[in-house]
Every structure is written in structure tokens, then in C-alpha cells.
Simulated scan of single mutants.
Amino acid sequence: MTETAATGPVALVTGSSSGIGEAVARRLAAAGYRVVVNSARSVAAGQAVAAELPGAVYLQGDVADPQQARELVERTVEQLGRLDLLVNNAGTTRIIPHGDLAAADGEVWREILDVNVIGTWQVTTAAVPHLEATGQGAIVNISSIAGCRPAGSSVPYAVSKAAINHMTRLLAASLGPAVRVNAVAPGLIDTPWTADFTEPRKWVSTQAPLQRVGTTEDVAEAVLALARAAYTTGEVLLVDGGTHLR
């Protein structure tokens, strides 16, 4: 193990066995972070990602479960000695047309809010004392353009991301100066989740100023930038190729 892998800052990236979370984990590892890769269920995939990153470990844990969320942070600090950066990426959704109110029933709302909002809160509250101990801790929440405009895979999902945006600002106001809190709000990103989004892909590729669908690496670069931005807190950074301008 190199000196950087042995002594570098520690980042916990929830929901990082694939997609955006995996890209974030890989980018942070390349920047010298010792990364904790996490998933609730995809254990083999998460272990495979961690095995490829210097100094990384894999920890299973469901952020929606309060005990597992707390233990995820505790085991991170036990195994790697500290926590400098928390990336709240774990999330879920249901694809439901916005006009189909009956389909977005209470069960759907609870499932999405439990992971996206409450899960983010539970990991954050467990992590804050350790982030404060560094004197320069940082949190980056993964939101969505759906939290900034009336769009998204379902109404409950969009509302959950709007909640993340406001949670980001509230936490930034109360946790400074020891901990900075920001969010990245991706637009349409090329992931397995969006593979069959034919019409949205066509629209973004022709109408957005940058005329392409985003990549997971685009989001990862934004996360790293906010992790390093020592005088930035309370910001929700849109990473959407300018889609919001249309």
C-alpha cells in the first residue's frame, strides 16, 4: 500500500457499488482518499469495486435502517481511523407518471423517503461528530434536477430531492465552520437506471446547451470539486449540461 493509500483522508460514499456512487468512489480514490464503498444489498459488486481501489474497504449497510446507518459510520472510523468526507449517494425511486396520483400511494412515499431523506439524515447525524473532529469535514449530498424543477421519475422522488436540497442548506447554516455541506444535482445521467429513457435522452441531446447526456464521471468531478472547495457551503450545484436553462 502506498503512503497515500495508508494515510490519506477518508471518504464514505453510500450506495457506491454501481452508477454514480461507484464513479464518485473511483474519482475520490484517484484523488488520494481512502474510500469506504457501501451498498445495502449488492455485496459482491461493492466488494469488487473496493478491491480495485487503493486503501478502500467495503461495508454493507442499509442507510434507511437507523442502527445500520449508525454502525456504517462507526465501522468506517474503526477501520480507517477517521472520517473527512461523507457523500450521501444512496437513493431509490419508482417510475410513476406524475398524473397517476393513485399509484404514488403511501407505501411508495415511505419507501422513497425512508432511503432518500431519512437515510441521508441518519448517516449524516452519525457522521457529524467525526467530521467536526477533523476541523474541516465536508458533506456532499447527491440530489437531482428533479428537486429543482417539476420533473423526475415520480412525484415522491422529486419531493425527496427537493428535501435534500433544503436539508443541505439548513445543515450548512448550522454546521459551519467545522463542516461544509453542499449538494450536486445531476440532470439526465447515463446509468443503468436511465438506459430506456429514449425520449428524455433525445431531448437533452438536442436542446440542452451542451447537447449530450451526462456521464457518471461528470457527477464525480463535481463531487470532488465541492469536497475541495474550502470557502463554499450551502450550495446545490446543477450538473445537467445546462438543461435547467431550457
Rank of each mutant, 00 (worst) to 15 (best):
V24W: 03
A25V: 07
A25G: 11
R26M: 02
R27S: 01
R27V: 03
A30Y: 11
A30P: 00
A31F: 06
V43F: 02
A51C: 06
V57L: 12
D62A: 11
V63S: 02
A64N: 10
P66S: 05
Q67L: 13
A69H: 02
R70W: 11
R70G: 13
E71V: 09
E71M: 10
E74V: 15
T76N: 01
E78H: 10
L80T: 06
L80R: 00
R82I: 08
V87W: 01
N88M: 07
N88S: 14
N89M: 03
N89K: 03
T92D: 01
I95A: 07
I96K: 03
P97S: 05
G99Q: 10
D100G: 02
L101P: 01
A102E: 15
A102I: 09
A104R: 02
G106V: 08
G106K: 06
G106M: 09
E107G: 13
R110D: 15
I112C: 02
I112D: 00
L113F: 08
I118R: 14
G119L: 09
T120S: 14
T124M: 08
T125M: 11
L131M: 06
T134K: 09
G137Y: 12
I139H: 07
I139S: 05
V140A: 00
V140N: 04
S143D: 09
S143I: 13
S144M: 10
I145M: 15
I145N: 12
R149C: 12
P150M: 07
G152Q: 10
S153Q: 14
P156G: 06
K161A: 09
